[in-house]
Design a protein around this nucleic acid. Structure first.
Length: 877
RNA sequence: GGGAGCAUAGCUCAGUUGGUUUAGAGCAUCUGCCUUACAAGCAGAGGGUCCGCGGUUCGAACCCGUGUGCUCCCACCA
């Protein structure tokens, strides 16, 4: 078969993915084997594949494919998240484009459109994962709003409510006065605006003294319930415990102290309006201040304001300033630049506002989840995230789980007209509970809570609910697959998601949901900026796959991403991946080319060094085993990019640059049968090791090498055998000698075609005996002997303690060579002196470990030998 | 403001209990090669005040302190 000049990934990738699907290799059912479960962090249904997904899913695929090849029952569960905010926003936007306002249609109609949208676009991202080669069990595709999943979410709500862990409480939220809805923090856009800072003075009660505060929102004065100063602020110490009078409305408010107030901003005195500012609210809670809500839901002032009732807050700002001024309360007005929140949807200035929300009480749930991580029942990779996790868990705040949205799991609470409510799975149940208090109620009186649950309130059940852990408790699948092995996710959602999954797992499965968490970094562009749509610096992943191939993309992103570090994405890494593919392809072509030239003889039958490079096969066997062991260790430590680097250099340097060159027969010479067979076996084994990282090309090459009894992706890997250290050392010596001789040839401009004679001066000829054949071919030496050269026109090279004389026809210019030797001599002398200094330090000899001292002695002896060697060489010149 | 982390070659990073390292790799750069697997290649080379300062130690890129610069998370300043 004719193999193409370069590797062409397109058709090959599509072919193998379909083949794997047809064979059902990615599908898992429980059996006697050990399970290895990974659940995908469910991408949003609104999502399209970006670099972050690429990184994250490549890592998962590597872990899953490797486990599968180690004989484990690997199961990687796909699925999507309903992503309530993001999806609802998309659907609203789509409706708006069709001229439909959300407010003009009812909840059911809206949800109809939302489901339609989900069915149409929600699966795109999963299809894209197939292009990357992800070995997911597609029969298990889950969605956080599937019927059974939905019911489990509701049941968890009911259960936690029953346990007293869910309650209703007031909270400051971001209020959009135009849309008359609450906004999530993510929907608030902070912009810098030019404001005024108004200095307003308040009279101290029962005194002629005044205290001046600074504010950008003078209209909120009407809701003031305290003035706060720093307890250490000398200017105000005499006012502690006194009262001030709110201008215009003459309310008496206390002057309180709190460390929160900084002395160097404004006047060091802060007016406190608990109903209209996040921080003031917290201060109010802490100091038990009265909360006066002076604003209606449309941004106009309410009756509680006493003045300007019914007028918009910004109108009031314009009017209240002159009024304050006319009564002598304005001290000065300064220009001021500050950050103001705007609604992402309506661009209205967001107003902090108090509202009644549902909460999960977190302390109790957090305790076992904190323990699981601190005691390493769950291991974080890298471990540095343990600190972050601990800090958050120890200072955990209650979780606000209600969202003023329609797309999501609707809160199972029903209200009677008098405000009484019941939490129940059905309206009927709620009715029966509420009628026991008030028998006059009818079903029609009951109204279900309009709000939805936070998206994370469903995704925290993901690791067991994909196996119906709650909807069908104790079923065989959840018993087999749960807990999962490794979660791969971004550190930015450690609190939103990872911590809460651990809590839910402990609470409902009595077991942590995973054993390992691998935190990926954030994918950034070359300049270190986060990839985002607005910057336009996020490349189109599918276009990259088309251009470089999926294997190259996977290689490129993995080679530059140590765990937990951000990765700076650079297309040159993909190019490196593509080149690596090509290197593999060409190595295949070379080895396949040997097929027609196999000699019936093996390397042992012949004494001809040219066709019996048994040293090469023995050496590479050891080299391969060593690399295999290294990869095993690195993978256990989740050092994936280092494992890939190890394989890259094994294949490119040791296999292609050294081994194949050593084992390669001369032009039209036969190939020893055992060399051929071993080369094929090594190649196969390397393809197996590389398969999890680059699944497509490895399968293709594996199949082309020879007729296989199975496909590579389910071929079991064998454990590394011990490597022979002597032969490894001999290989390193050979490499070193070849490099040194090539360097000398290069520097003396001896052309590759020019032959040389080589004399080796050594006290120990034995290590060289095995490698003469290879050596002569690699440095183009016509003869090699162990005699001292007597020709004066020679180049002398020192490697370790041995000397190499290159005899050539070419006239040599020794000046450059001399300079080189002098430089090396100086280095060696300096080195010797530094070692000598160490060894003559008595305290070093006394305190250091004996083996360290011994090592220094050896370094010393070696350096001495090299110095003598170099000095002699210089004399010869 | 609270917390976490980072600083090693032009770039991206290794350097695992302080001693096989007067520091390694890949990419980039330079030099020479169209050598019959591969120019998406081959052979070779150059390149470092391990952020500054102080300390601990026989010995520090590594441990401690401190300064500087950068990044991220949370809360966002009246």
């Amino acid at each position: 078969m004719e193999l193409s000049k370069n590797y062409l990934p397109g058709d090959i990738e599509a072919k193998w993915y379909q083949h794997w699907l047809d064979k059902g290799y990615f599908n898992s059912t429980p059996d006697h084997r050990e399970s290895f479960t990974v659940v995908i962090p469910p991408p949003n249904v609104t999502g399209v594949l970006h670099m972050g997904h690429c990184l994250n899913n490549t890592i998962q695929d590597i872990l899953v494919r490797r486990a599968r090849m180690q004989g484990k029952n690997a199961c990687w569960v796909p699925g999507t998240d309903h992503a309530s905010i993001a999806t609802e926003a998309k659907v609203v936007q789509m409706l708006r484009e069709r001229g439909i306002a959300k407010s003009s249609i009812g909840r059911d109609e809206f949800l109809g459109y939302a489901w339609e949208w989900k069915e149409k676009y929600g699966g795109i991202i999963l299809q894209q994962l197939k292009k990357m080669g992800c070995s997911l069990d597609w029969n298990r595709t889950s969605f956080t709003m599937d019927d059974a999943y939905y019911k489990s979410v509701i049941n968890v709500f009911i259960d936690l409510h029953k346990k007293g862990l869910i309650y209703r409480g007031k909270r400051m939220i971001n209020w959009d006065v135009k849309a008359k809805t609450a906004l999530s923090d993510e929907e608030v856009i902070y912009k810098e605006v030019q404001s005024k800072l108004y200095y307003v003075r308040y009279q101290i009660a029962d005194s002629d003294e005044y205290i001046t505060i600074a504010t950008v929102r003078p209209e909120t004065i009407l809701g003031d319930t305290a003035i706060c100063v720093n307890p250490d602020d000398e200017r105000y110490k005499h006012l502690h415990g006194k009262y001030a009078i709110v201008p215009l409305i003459n309310r008496r408010i206390p002057i309180i102290t709190d460390e929160y107030v900084t002395t160097d901003f404004g006047t060091g005195a802060l007016k406190v309006t608990p109903a209209h500012d996040m921080n003031d609210y917290q201060l109010g809670q802490k100091h038990q201040l009265e909360v006066i809500d002076t604003m209606n839901d449309d941004g106009t002032l309410s009756e509680a304001a006493q003045l300007y009732i019914g007028e918009d807050r910004f109108e009031v700002r314009k009017k209240i300033v002159p009024e304050l001024d006319s009564k002598g309360h304005i001290v000065k007005i300064e220009d001021y630049t500050n950050q103001v929140g705007f609604s992402e949807r309506t661009d209205a200035v967001v107003e902090p506002r108090l509202s009644l929300q549902w909460w999960v009480s977190m302390k109790e749930l957090a305790a076992p989840a904190l323990k699981a991580v601190m005691e390493e029942e769950i291991q974080f990779h890298p471990a540095k995230f343990k600190n972050l996790y601990r800090h958050w868990m120890e200072n955990i705040k209650d979780w606000c789980i209600s969202r003023q949205l329609w797309w999501g799991h609707r809160i199972p609470a029903w209200y009677a007209p008098d405000g009484q409510y019941a939490v129940a799975a059905t309206k009927e149940e709620a009715f029966s509970r509420l009628t026991s208090h008030d028998s006059r109620l009818t079903m029609d009186d009951l109204r279900q809570d309009d709000d939805c649950l936070d998206t994370w309130f469903s995704s925290w059940l993901w690791p067991f609910e994909v196996f119906k852990g709650l909807s069908d408790p104790g079923n065989a699948e959840v018993k087999y697959y749960y807990p999962t092995n490794t979660l791969v996710t971004a550190p930015e959602i450690i609190f939103f998601w990872v911590a809460r999954m651990i809590m839910a797992g402990e609470e409902y499965m009595q077991q942590t949901p995973f054993k390992n968490v691998y935190f990926t970094g954030i994918v950034r562009d070359k300049q270190g900026r986060k990839m985002s749509k607005s910057l336009g610096n996020s490349p189109d992943l599918l276009a990259l796959i088309d251009q470089y191939g999926a294997d190259a993309v996977r290689f490129g992103i993995m080679i530059s991403s140590p765990a937990g570090n951000d990765i700076l994405f650079d297309e040159s890494a993909l190019e490196q991946g593509r080149n690596f593919n090509n290197k593999l392809w060409n190595a295949l072509k070379l080895v396949k080319g040997w097929e027609s030239r196999i000699s019936p003889l093996t390397s042992h039958d012949s004494h001809d060094a040219q066709i019996s490079p048994s040293f090469a096969t023995d050496w590479f066997h050891a080299r391969l085993q060593k690399a295999k062991a290294e990869v095993e260790t690195l993978m256990q430590q989740f050092r994936l990019s280092e494992a890939l680097k190890t394989l890259y250099s094994l294949i490119w340097d040791d296999f292609c640059s050294w081994y194949l060159e050593w084992a390669k027969p001369g032009f039209e010479q036969p190939v020893a049968a055992d060399v051929y067979a071993k080369t094929i076996a090594y190649f196969e084994e390397m393809m197996q090791l590389l398969h999890p990282f680059m699944p497509f090309i490895t399968e293709e090459i594996y199949q082309l090498l020879r007729t296989q009894e199975t496909d590579i992706c389910i071929k079991q890997q064998t454990a590394a055998q011990p490597a022979d250290n002597n032969i490894l050392a001999a290989g390193e010596l050979l490499k070193q000698v070849i490099s040194a001789l090539r360097d000398a040839r290069n520097k003396n401009q001896i052309k590759p075609k020019d032959q040389i004679k080589l004399h080796i001066e050594t006290v120990n000829e034995a290590p060289y005996k095995n490698i003469i054949g290879i050596l002569s071919k690699q440095v183009n030496a016509v003869t090699i002997d162990f005699d001292t050269a007597n020709n004066t026109n020679t180049i002398v090279i020192a490697v370790e303690k041995d000397k190499f004389f290159i005899e050539t026809e070419k006239q040599l210019d020794t000046t450059a060579l001399k300079a080189e030797l002098l430089k090396d001599l100086e280095y060696q002398k300096n080195f010797r002196d530094s070692v000598l200094k160490k060894l003559s330090n008595e305290r070093f000899v006394q305190n250091a470990k004996p083996e360290v001292v011994e090592l220094e002695r050896k370094k010393m002896a070696d350096a001495e030998a090299r110095i003598t060697n170099l000095e002699e060489s210089l004399k010869n010149l």
